[in-house]
Nucleic acid binder design. Structure first.
Lengths: 229, 229
DNA sequence: AAGTGGTCTAGACCACGGC
DNA sequence: CCGTGGTCTAGACCACTTC
């Protein structure tokens, strides 16, 4: 007989939850008891339960024990592709065009998203990513030059801002949201689409140990799909 | 001095990657060497490196060793909220209205997404989720009645299809994509929005061990934001 | 064939947080 | 206080994959 692995335990626990042997909200046996039941060590049970907790099926608290989560919201991992890679993977030639560069105070929506004072000037870049010279996505970015001073002297006509930042600014934490938006005059002109077309919009802000680095909004071409793995 | 924990190692490794002490593509020391360097056991190093690999920063292969990933596509975990919960969390009263129920052959887009024969009839449900009686999202769902026969005799006017399925159909794997779409006549009427409004659209299909269970498309009200954690 | 990561064990100590 | 999960150790064996 094969030895019980943490994977086997995960499968078994998932099944017990599915068939309601352990109903939602229920306290399940502690690690030591399960280790005995499955004839394995506590570390093995621990890994299985820890991963199920990360997946959102279980809730664990010291002393209180491990419970089956009542309403398991399903989680999905999105991969935010690197624009250049994504375009080249389609067999197209990646291109990048800087549309606007200014150093100015951002709108309130940006200061709020980044958590900077409303009067602080930021570096504002608008650019278009292209595949075979056709627009693929529009990027509207604000960079905190207090955190990344060298951005002020960088030629973003030549360097893709995202790729430059990855190499020149550390970051510890990011925050992403998605929404849909109708194309306005500017977006429709830059992307070559009809006014009003529905675009998938991604807003991403990044920080380094609490200090805001950059906030970017990407408008994807209508029809673009963002996938989970 | 504090003992080196796997968290400390993660921080240190991230930093070495960031400062390019270990450049992209580079092979890093093996687990045993790092364990010696950090004066800890190999298991501790293993956990740190494993989690960094899950996060997409490292790539690990037996015998080949551990490398820094060249283009770390950033990953983000989305929480797909349960509709009822999300609405109730806003302090609103959840409601659910069945608009259409039929048993028919689906359009090609659905048969392709689910991987069923083009002539196989599926249960088709269209419904609206409401908060305080106002539309919140439109749901267009197809259920494979071969896998879930009891769906045919269920009163989906009374039971929310998602909640019913969670309790009555096992599933092993799901697949989610997001896109944006302009509201057509039907969507605008059901959601009470202008024709052409940009809606965030989620497509989700689920399978149980390779057998398709259901495929659903959710149209969210314009302005809705999907967030990562 | 050999080196690397993947996993398991048995035991230990600790931190948190119900009680 | 003291039970629970969180983590670490030292050692072991195994699986994979490159050489």
């Amino acid at each position: 007989m094969k030895r019980t692995s943490f994977q086997d335990i995960k499968v078994e626990v998932r099944s017990r939850i599915a068939v309601r042997q352990w109903p939602p909200g229920e306290l399940i046996p502690n690690e030591q008891e399960l280790a005995t039941e499955f004839s394995c060590s506590r570390a093995t049970v621990n890994r299985a339960l820890r991963e199920l907790a990360e997946a959102g099926l279980l809730e664990r608290r010291r002393k209180a024990g491990t419970r089956v989560v009542v309403n398991p919201a399903s989680k999905a991992t999105l991969v935010i592709p690197i624009m250049r890679q994504e375009i080249e993977n389609c067999g197209q030639i990646y291109g990048y065009k800087l549309i606007l560069r200014e150093h100015t105070a951002p709108p309130i929506s940006v200061t709020r998203a980044m958590g900077v004072p409303t009067d602080q000037r930021l570096l504002h870049l608008i650019s278009v990513h292209t595949g075979n010279a056709k627009p693929f996505a529009l990027e509207d970015r604000w960079i905190n030059t207090i955190q990344v001073p060298s951005a002020q002297t960088t030629d973003f006509g030549q360097y893709n801002a995202n790729e430059w930042l990855v190499q020149n600014a550390a970051y510890s934490h990011g925050d992403i949201t998605f929404t849909a938006s109708n194309a306005g005059d500017f977006e429709s002109e830059q992307l070559g689409i009809d006014v009003g077309s529905a675009m998938l919009v991604m807003d991403r802000s990044t920080w380094d140990n609490g200090s805001p680095i950059t906030s970017v909004r990407i408008y994807y071409l209508p029809g673009y799909r963002m996938q989970t793995i």
